[in-house]
Simulated assay, not measured.
Amino acid sequence: MIKAVLFDMDGVLVDTEWFYNRRRCAYLETKGYTFDEIPDLSGTNDVYIWEYFEPNDAERRAELKREYFATYMKEHPVPYDELKNPDARPVMEELRRRGVLCAIASSGQREMIEELVGAADLRDVLDATVSGHEVSAFKPDPAVYLRTMELLGVEPRECLVVEDSPLGIEAGLRSGARVLALKPREGVTLDQSQAHRVIDTLWDVIDEIDS
Score class of each variant (00 low, 15 high):
residue 118 G to N: 10
residue 210 D to K: 10
residue 184 P to K: 03
residue 191 D to Q: 01
residue 132 G to D: 07
residue 183 K to E: 10
residue 121 D to H: 14
residue 21 N to K: 00
residue 167 L to N: 09
residue 101 L to T: 00
residue 59 E to P: 00
residue 101 L to W: 01
residue 5 V to I: 12
residue 72 Y to Q: 01
residue 87 D to H: 13
residue 146 L to G: 05
residue 30 T to S: 15
residue 175 S to C: 07
residue 48 Y to D: 12
residue 123 R to D: 08
residue 28 L to F: 08
residue 67 E to Q: 14
residue 112 M to P: 03
residue 162 V to T: 08
residue 211 S to P: 03
residue 193 S to L: 03
residue 104 I to Q: 00
residue 10 D to M: 00
residue 157 R to H: 14
residue 61 R to W: 06
residue 90 P to A: 03
residue 201 T to S: 15
residue 143 A to V: 09
residue 152 L to E: 08
residue 54 E to R: 13
residue 95 L to D: 04
residue 111 E to V: 15
residue 23 R to K: 12
residue 152 L to D: 08
residue 37 E to Q: 04
residue 211 S to F: 08
residue 142 P to S: 02
residue 48 Y to T: 13
residue 20 Y to E: 10
residue 138 F to C: 07
residue 81 D to H: 11
residue 1 M to K: 14
residue 47 V to G: 06
residue 4 A to R: 01
residue 111 E to S: 15
residue 18 W to N: 14
residue 123 R to A: 15
residue 104 I to Y: 11
residue 138 F to L: 12
residue 55 P to A: 07
residue 111 E to K: 15
residue 34 T to S: 15
residue 4 A to C: 12
residue 10 D to K: 01
residue 162 V to R: 03
residue 39 P to V: 05
residue 32 G to Q: 13
residue 59 E to N: 09
residue 45 N to I: 03
residue 163 E to M: 04
residue 90 P to W: 02
residue 181 A to R: 04
residue 90 P to V: 02
residue 64 L to K: 11
residue 55 P to M: 04
residue 99 G to W: 01
residue 8 D to M: 10
residue 73 M to G: 15
residue 113 I to N: 04
residue 58 A to P: 07
residue 109 Q to T: 04
residue 27 Y to Q: 00
residue 113 I to E: 03
residue 8 D to V: 13
residue 135 V to A: 07
residue 193 S to G: 13
residue 209 I to T: 06
residue 38 I to R: 05
residue 36 D to K: 14
residue 141 D to P: 02
residue 17 E to T: 04
residue 28 L to C: 05
residue 158 E to V: 04
residue 204 D to L: 14
residue 108 G to V: 06
residue 36 D to R: 11
residue 68 Y to L: 02
residue 83 L to C: 06
residue 113 I to T: 09
residue 16 T to S: 15
residue 5 V to T: 10
residue 55 P to T: 09
residue 155 E to S: 09
residue 172 G to E: 02
residue 155 E to Q: 12
residue 69 F to T: 07
residue 156 P to N: 04
residue 145 Y to G: 03
residue 188 V to I: 15
residue 4 A to Q: 00
residue 186 E to R: 07
residue 75 E to W: 05
residue 83 L to Y: 02
residue 161 V to S: 04
residue 193 S to C: 03
residue 33 Y to M: 09
residue 103 A to V: 05
residue 54 E to H: 11
residue 209 I to L: 13
residue 106 S to L: 05
residue 201 T to N: 02
residue 173 L to M: 13
residue 135 V to W: 02
residue 88 A to S: 14
residue 211 S to G: 15
residue 80 Y to V: 14
residue 69 F to H: 14
residue 106 S to T: 07
residue 90 P to K: 08
residue 13 L to E: 09
residue 20 Y to W: 12
residue 20 Y to S: 11
residue 103 A to G: 10
residue 47 V to L: 11
residue 58 A to W: 07
residue 161 V to P: 05
residue 45 N to F: 09
residue 138 F to H: 12
residue 143 A to R: 07
residue 35 F to D: 05
residue 181 A to G: 10
